[in-house]
Amino acid sequence: MEHTLETTITVNGTRVTRRVSARQHLVDFLREELGLTGAHYGCEHGVCGACTVRVDGEIVRGCLMLAVQANGRTVDTIEGLSDSGEIAGLQAAFHRRNALQCGFCTPGMLMAAQDLARTRPDATREEIREHMSGNYCRCTGYHAIVDAVEDALKQSAQTGGKR
């Protein structure tokens, strides 16, 4: 039998407890155990950012973290951020600008963009490009993504940084 550990994680605000194989990655746990398929695998070695989720408020590569390492912690995924409305402004800007084509990179992109919105809401276009550089997108060429993030940051600055 595979070595399993009881693991409790608060995922998108709901506590879940499962016996988890010690070697299972966080994204596999989210996708296979919980059916949260918004975080994707693009490379499985920490390069593409498609698997980005938030653990205790920090964005991490879900393919580099084991599910058991998230024991006792809080995990937020694209589904949770969508339902809570936290990234509604970013999503609207991405939609308006067509900052996604196939959409496979998009959950990770939105996670990274929201991280910027929280940490450096006054980021310049150059800084946006820099910050988003850990997330690979094959479809868009990035220009529209940068436009969308810029729009969303401006918009939230105008509305007083309120989400």
Binding site: T37, A39, Y41, E79, H95, L100, T106, P107
Partner: peptide, 14 residues
């Protein structure tokens, strides 16, 4: 695009 923006797309592995 709206579905994809919420991570509610349906790719084969999903």
């Amino acid at each position: 695009a709206k579905r994809l923006l919420q991570g509610r797309g349906s790719y084969i592995d999903d």
